[in-house]
Simulated scan of single mutants.
Amino acid sequence: MVGQRSDRSSQSLESPRERADAGIDRRAFLRTAVSGGFALGVAHVLGADDFLAAGDDEVPIVTALVRTDPEDPFSIEERVRHVPADWHAAVEKAFELNELLARIGFTGYLGSAVVPGDYESGTATVSIGVSSEGATIPEAIREFADDVSINTETIIDVDDVEVRPESARPRILDTAAEGAPAGVACETPSSMATLGPALHYPPEERSFFVTAEHAYEGMPEPVGEPLSLPIRGAKGIELGRVARAHPVADVAVVEPNGPVAPASWIDAPTPVRVRGQLTKYGLADLLAREERLEKVGALTGHTTGRIQGVDAVTCFTDDFCRRGQIRWGGEMDLTDGDSGSVSYYADPEGDDEDVLVAGFNNARTWWPGQSYVWGISAYRLTEKHGYHF
Rank of each mutant, 00 (worst) to 15 (best):
E71G: 10
F38L: 06
D7T: 09
I24E: 09
H214D: 01
D319A: 06
G309Q: 03
F360H: 10
R241K: 14
V126E: 09
A261L: 14
T32F: 04
Q325E: 15
G111V: 05
E139A: 12
V223I: 09
Y345C: 06
S371D: 14
V115W: 01
G386E: 12
A261Y: 11
F144D: 01
I141G: 00
P189I: 14
A33C: 05
S9L: 10
I172Q: 00
T107E: 15
V251Y: 11
H200N: 14
L173D: 04
A180M: 04
P170Y: 04
G359S: 06
R17N: 10
W374D: 15
T314E: 05
E349W: 15
D338H: 01
A298Y: 04
L40C: 07
F95Q: 10
F209E: 00
F316H: 10
G111T: 09
C315M: 03
E225W: 13
A22I: 02
T188H: 04
K235H: 07
V310W: 10
G122E: 15
V80S: 08
A378D: 12
Y344D: 07
A288K: 06
W367F: 12
L286H: 00
R323I: 14
T317I: 01
P203F: 14
E162I: 08
S121L: 07
R244D: 13
